[in-house]
Amino acid sequence: MLAVTRVLAPNPGVYTLEGTNTWVVGSEPSIVIDPGPDLPAHLADVAREAGRVGAILVTHDHPDHTPGALPFAEMVGAPVYAYRLAGAQELRAGQRVRAGALNLTAIHTPGHTSDHVAFFEPGSGALFTGDAVVGRGTSFIDPPDGNLVQYLRSLTRMEELGPRTIYPGHGPVVVRAKEKIREYLAHREERESQVLTALADGPRTIAEMVEVIYVDHPKDVRPLAARSMLAHLLKLADEGRAERTGKTDEGPWISSTPRTCQRCGRTVKGKARYCSSCSLAMLQAER
């Protein structure tokens, strides 16, 4: 049975829920995931729980997950692996990180951030999701580093792994992992439908849509909601189903009809006249 222990960082907030979850996986040697903020007392707690550390992993470069990684590495004498972190060893998609008999596979899961990585232990079905899936509520997508199209692909990729338990970056452990991921996919589909419904009534700014769609949410989450709303609108714009008419991301935004390739009839992105396949074919024909 895989030994997993949580050490909760004392950084509660709107973004972090009760705080950042630092995960200690295995023992003698252990692997530590997301040391969290650079708080000496927290790092000391992690060191006591972890014992001999074989590797330190970082899911993504956000201030509630990363700053403690290098100081903790100096404390315990173990290497840090991250997709994007100065001073760490570069982590590659699909790379296996070993510590004793423990073997975790890095799964590149962009969307919450472009550098986001989850870690999977296939024997137990344990999936350490960082902020791609959290224990309560939904993940925050903040463009431009956050990208909803990539995020949806990452959710599907994680579901395909067949995880049994999710150990998130914030909030409680999720014991019905695949069900949780499906809930996340359904939530994004529902939110997109709400955005399209709002746009069907005419031009709308992001602030106007947030007031309607997030009417039952606390006001302190409205700034986060606005950024997630932008992520949905950028996805729809890329698909030709929404268009910004204002000079800034705030809008107003309007609904639009997807354009089709003038050569083959496939849907094209944005205002392109031809799909990528036809564009390439025509370029090759001209040579």
Score class of each variant (00 low, 15 high):
residue 66 T to K: 10
residue 138 T to H: 03
residue 139 S to H: 00
residue 170 H to N: 01
residue 86 A to R: 05
residue 119 F to G: 14
residue 113 T to Y: 12
residue 158 M to P: 01
residue 31 I to G: 03
residue 166 I to R: 01
residue 229 M to D: 06
residue 264 C to E: 04
residue 211 E to V: 07
residue 242 A to P: 02
residue 205 T to S: 13
residue 244 R to E: 10
residue 175 V to A: 10
residue 262 Q to C: 07
residue 131 D to W: 03
residue 172 P to C: 07
residue 283 L to K: 14
residue 73 A to R: 08
residue 80 V to N: 01
residue 248 T to H: 08
residue 64 D to E: 09
residue 6 R to T: 13
residue 43 L to C: 13
residue 182 R to E: 09
residue 52 R to F: 09
residue 192 E to Q: 09
residue 223 P to H: 11
residue 11 N to D: 05
residue 174 V to W: 02
residue 121 E to V: 15
residue 90 E to N: 12
residue 66 T to L: 06
residue 14 V to I: 12
residue 262 Q to V: 13
residue 253 W to M: 04
residue 281 A to F: 11
residue 105 T to G: 09
residue 264 C to F: 06
residue 34 D to P: 02
residue 174 V to G: 03
residue 186 A to M: 10
residue 82 A to D: 08
residue 37 P to A: 07
residue 89 Q to S: 05
residue 132 A to G: 01
residue 108 H to I: 15
residue 154 S to A: 04
residue 198 A to T: 07
residue 150 Q to C: 03
residue 173 V to S: 00
residue 228 S to G: 15
residue 231 A to I: 03
residue 215 V to L: 13
residue 167 Y to V: 03
residue 280 L to T: 13
residue 124 S to P: 14
residue 191 R to Y: 13
residue 97 V to P: 04
residue 95 Q to N: 07
residue 240 G to T: 06
residue 230 L to A: 10
residue 210 V to E: 15
residue 258 P to G: 00
